[in-house]
């Protein structure tokens, strides 16, 4: 494959950047948050829960910051003239960029997961292998979606400043996604959304899991067996614990048993994540293949 040297170079670019290893440290520090709630929720599998906590927020920020310059950076410096002059189709350039960045950031996140696992085993003992493997694969899917998105931003904008602004915009929107969805839902239906006692609405709950991070949490909560929700695993546990009253959107809390619509099945989060990989990739390809690159 003629694009594999490009992928290797992109991977090295990530691995030799300082930000990458800071991300590893942050994921470990941010993820390792032992709580009684977490322990009560999933016992020794809390180590796997740390991966979910560490990945939440930090992986989207880190992965987008490590990809948003991948193409616009080369356009700005003019090094893209060497890249385009190579015997590669434009689609192969995008592929090399995406695969290389994915591998580089994947290695970094892999090290973070390894460190969390070692700390977890030392602190809490061994954990179940299957959910662990599932959560690692889900994390890889989330990363692929974020890299796909980062490369799209880098392809579609015309300056590094716009690319950085788009990254901030994305983080901001996903951070306040449940508020955005609630407001829009209320505006359309006239039904107020109280997160302490959310309406049993399929579309509302479906919209809440449409972000890559939301879909990831739904998937990992399912693998951890805490419940069907885009919230973090300990929040889901608390929401469903008897006598607890917190503001969180959890399917089992809003719907009577067996009444939730089929499209809220947690496994469909895989489809959502795959869509987040495929659609930005297709858009990048369309933008990059058509028109001038300078």
């Amino acid at each position: 494959m003629q694009w594999s040297p490009l992928a290797r170079r992109e991977c090295r670019t990530v691995l030799t950047s300082k930000g990458a290893w800071i991300l590893t440290a942050l994921i470990v520090l941010w993820g390792f948050r032992p709580t009684y709630t977490g322990w009560n929720a999933i016992g020794q599998n809390i180590t796997i829960g740390y991966i979910q906590l560490g990945v939440n927020l930090l992986l989207p920020i880190g992965a987008l910051l490590l990809t948003y310059q991948s193409l616009i950076g080369e356009r700005t410096t003019g090094s893209i003239k060497f890249l385009i002059a190579l015997p590669l189709k434009r689609t192969q350039i995008l592929l090399g960029k995406s695969v290389g960045r994915f591998a580089g950031i994947g290695a970094i996140v892999g090290v973070a997961v390894l460190l969390i696992s070692i700390i977890g085993v030392v602190e809490h003992g061994t954990f179940a292998v299957l959910p662990f493997v599932g959560v690692v694969l889900a994390t890889a899917l989330l990363l692929a979606a974020l890299v796909s998105l980062g490369v799209l931003l880098s392809t579609a904008v015309d300056s590094t400043v716009s690319a950085a602004a788009s990254v901030l915009g994305y983080i901001f929107v996903t951070l306040f996604w449940s508020t955005v969805v609630s407001k829009v839902y209320t505006a359309i239906t006239g039904v107020p959304v109280d997160p302490y006692d959310a309406p049993a609405s399929g579309p509302l709950f479906f919209a809440l899991r449409l972000t890559p991070d939301g879909a990831y949490n739904v998937l990992t909560n399912w693998l951890l067996g805490v419940g069907n929700s885009a919230e973090q695993f300990h929040t889901v546990y608390t929401k469903l614990a008897p006598g607890q009253f917190i503001n969180a959107f959890v399917v089992e809390a809003a719907f009577e048993s067996g009444t939730a619509p089929w499209y809220l099945h947690p496994a469909l989060s895989i489809v959502i994540l795959l869509t987040w990989i495929a659609v930005p990739m297709a858009l990048s390809r369309r933008v990059f293949n058509n028109g001038d690159v300078l």
């Binding site: 080369e74 410096t77 003019g78 090094s79 003239k81 060497f82 002059a85």
Partner: peptide, 9 residues
Amino acid sequence: VLPDRFGLY
């Protein structure tokens, strides 16, 4: 190709 106004890595 030796391009004009290029940037190196």
